[in-house]
C-alpha cells in the first residue's frame, strides 16, 4: 500500500440470490483497508449494477455470486458497463465458480475470481496491485 492512490469500489450482489454474508464482509474489509466502498444491496440486475458503477464513479466492481448464474451475470454486467462507456472499470468476482468456467469468464473480461477460502487480505492486496484510478474523471 505504498501509493497514495484513492480507489472507489462497488461491491455488488447480482441476481436473485440473497446470500450476502460474503459481500458484506468484503465490503467492510475493503473499507477498513482504506478503499471508498459502495455496497449495492441485494437482487440487482446487471443494468442496475452498471448504472451504479457509473453514477458512483468507481474504479472497480467486485461482484459476489453464489447461485451458479455467473456465466450469465458476469457477461451481462460487462456488457452493460460497455454500453455506458465504462469498460475500463475493473470487474472481479467472488463466489462459487468451478475451475472449468474460469477461462470463459477471463475471455469476457473478468479480471479474477476469488473462490471460497480466500482471505480478505488476499483480495485487498490484489486490488492495490491490479486496480488503477480511472483516468479522465
Amino acid at each position: 500500500m505504498s501509493e497514495e492512490k484513492i480507489l472507489r469500489i462497488l461491491v455488488a450482489k447480482a441476481g436473485l440470490d440473497g446470500h450476502d454474508r460474503g459481500a458484506k464482509i468484503i465490503a467492510r474489509a475493503l473499507r477498513d483497508a482504506g478503499f471508498e466502498v459502495i455496497y449495492t444491496g441485494l437482487h440487482q440486475t446487471p443494468e442496475m449494477i452498471a448504472e451504479a458503477a457509473v453514477q458512483e464513479d468507481v474504479d472497480a466492481v467486485g461482484l459476489s455470486i453464489l447461485s451458479g448464474a455467473h456465466m450469465t451475470l458476469f457477461p451481462a454486467i460487462l456488457g452493460a458497463l460497455k454500453e455506458r462507456g465504462a469498460e475500463d472499470v475493473a470487474v472481479f468476482g467472488g463466489g462459487i465458480v468451478p475451475e472449468d468456467d474460469m477461462p470463459g469468464l477471463t475471455k469476457v473480461g473478468v479480471k479474477t475470481v476469488f473462490t471460497p477460502g480466500a482471505s480478505t487480505q488476499e483480495i485487498v492486496d490484489w486490488i492495490w496491485a491490479n486496480v488503477e484510478p480511472r483516468s479522465g474523471l
Partner: peptide
C-alpha cells in the same frame, strides 16, 4: 430454484441463468 424463491416464472427476464440451478 431462485426464481421460485423470489416469485418469478421460468420465462421472466430476471430468471435468466437461474432456472433449475440451485
Amino acid at each position: 430454484d431462485m426464481p421460485v424463491l423470489m416469485g418469478y416464472d421460468a420465462d421472466h427476464p430476471r430468471s435468466l441463468g437461474e432456472v433449475g440451478r440451485e
